[in-house]
Each structure stands twice: as structure tokens, then as C-alpha cells.
């Protein structure tokens, strides 16, 4: 049963929509379960169909807890738990994966691409693969852990979610990302010096890095900025 829930949890964002967000994915993950338990099935289907949104990798907590709590006839508590779990699941997942792990894996992959451009293709490719595998090891671990702990703890699953928030992996990933980002900047800077870029070009690169660091986080800002750079780069240099 755990394996089936795990496999089906990969589809939890398949039909994301603006009314119920990822609820159809949750419903589909639990569907075989409800088919095997005809007693009170309509209510179970209805509860699984209720609004739900979280980070996609952490939805397993609610899938596992739903399977357990419906078995224990705790449907009413489950509804309250789902509502309460939305903010922490979103916050923990966004912070760990979108803010730290994905950028960390992205920067490591970029190291690989830089090595590839420098002619070390095999080494570069290996680094890209290692970064991807490392990211997905965490991804798969958290999915499996969510379903396991959800099924094990049922209504008490919120304790594990809170423990995850304090898990040292958050801190270490953030540090690793900050360090690798700094290294990337430093090597890039030294490489620009080695390239023998003249003063104005080097100053241009520094200025652009600093300005883009403070670029407003609006959708239009980045493409407009890049277009301006394209015009300036071709016209002035």
C-alpha cells in the first residue's frame, strides 16, 4: 500500500487548478484505497477532493495521514489537519527545496557547465549528474518519509512536519549554497581577469552584477533589463 501511494504521489500536481489547487492529485493518489473500502466512500472521496496545496514533494504527509485517519474513522479531524498543514508544508518545502537545494544543485551544475566550456567535458558532465542525483536523493527521501510518517502517525503527523522545520539539513543546505555561490562568483571574477577584458568591460561586468543584485522582483524587470543590456552591449562594445 505504501509503495502504491508513493508512486501515485508523483502525480499530485498533475491537475493543479485555481479552485482546489492540488486536490485532484491527492484524490487520485488515494483512489485505489477508497475503491477497496466501500463503507462511507462518498464522504472519503469528498474529503480527499477538498482544497489542498503544499510543496509538491511534501504532499506525501497528507496522503499518508489521510490513508491512516480514514481507516481510523477520523474524517472530521483529517479535514482540520489538512487545513492546518497547508502553511507549514508549503513553508518547509519552499524553503528547503526552492530556496536552498534547487539553487545549490543549480550552482553545482553550472560549475559542471563551466568545466565543460573549459574543455573538461567528462568532469563537467559528472558534476552535473552528481548535482542532479544529490537533489533527487533528497526529493525521494522526503516523499517516502512523508508517506511513511503520515501512515504511521496519523493525526500526530504535524509533530514530524514541525520537526522537519527544525531539521539541521535546512541550515547545512543554506550554508553549502552560500559557499558554492561565493566560490562561483570568485572564480568567475578571476576568470574575467584572466581573459584580459579591458577596464571598461570589466567595470561593466561588475556594475551589471551589482545592479542586477538589486533588480526589482517583478516579472517585467528581468526581460526589460536584458533587452537594455543587449542594445548597450552591441552598440557600445
Amino acid at each position: 500500500m505504501k509503495g502504491r501511494l508513493f508512486w501515485r504521489s508523483f502525480f499530485n500536481q498533475a491537475l493543479i487548478n485555481y479552485r482546489g489547487m492540488t486536490h485532484i492529485g491527492i484524490l487520485w493518489a488515494l483512489l485505489p484505497q477508497w475503491k477497496e473500502q466501500p463503507e462511507g466512500r462518498q464522504e472519503k472521496l469528498g474529503r480527499s477532493f477538498g482544497f489542498f496545496n503544499s510543496h509538491p514533494y511534501l504532499a506525501g504527509y497528507i496522503i499518508g495521514a489521510s490513508a491512516r485517519m480514514e481507516q481510523d474513522h477520523e474524517g472530521q479531524v483529517l479535514e482540520r489537519l489538512k487545513k492546518a498543514a497547508i502553511p507549514p508544508l508549503g513553508a518547509v518545502g519552499d524553503r528547503l527545496f526552492w530556496y536552498y537545494l534547487r539553487p545549490l544543485s543549480g550552482v553545482l551544475s553550472c560549475w559542471g557547465l563551466v568545466l565543460g566550456l573549459a574543455g573538461y567535458r567528462r568532469l563537467g558532465l559528472s558534476l552535473v549528474i552528481v548535482a542532479w542525483l544529490g537533489y533527487n536523493a533528497m526529493h525521494l527521501w522526503i516523499r517516502w518519509r512523508g508517506i511513511s510518517r503520515g501512515m504511521e502517525l496519523g493525526r500526530e503527523v504535524h509533530r514530524d512536519i514541525m520537526a522537519l522545520k527544525q531539521h539541521p539539513v535546512n541550515r547545512w543546505t543554506a550554508r553549502a549554497f552560500a559557499l558554492s555561490a561565493g566560490l562561483f562568483l570568485g572564480v568567475g571574477f578571476a576568470h574575467a581577469l584572466q581573459l584580459g577584458l579591458d577596464g571598461p568591460r570589466l567595470a561593466g561586468l561588475g556594475l551589471v552584477t551589482l545592479v542586477s543584485w538589486q533588480l526589482p522582483e517583478r516579472h517585467w524587470a528581468l526581460p526589460v533589463y536584458i533587452l537594455v543590456l543587449a542594445v548597450l552591449a552591441t552598440a557600445l562594445f
Binding site: Y99, L104, G106, L185, L205, V208, T209, S212, L215, I226
Partner: peptide, 17 residues
């Protein structure tokens, strides 16, 4: 241009986290 895009990418991307 590609260097300027890379500089922008470093500035915007690496402030994450």
C-alpha cells in the same frame, strides 16, 4: 553580451538563499 547576461544571472540568481 553573453558575459553581461552571465553577470546578470550571477547577480539575480545567487542572491537566492
Amino acid at each position: 553580451f553573453k558575459w553581461l547576461v552571465l553577470a546578470t544571472a550571477i547577480g539575480t540568481g545567487l542572491k537566492l538563499g
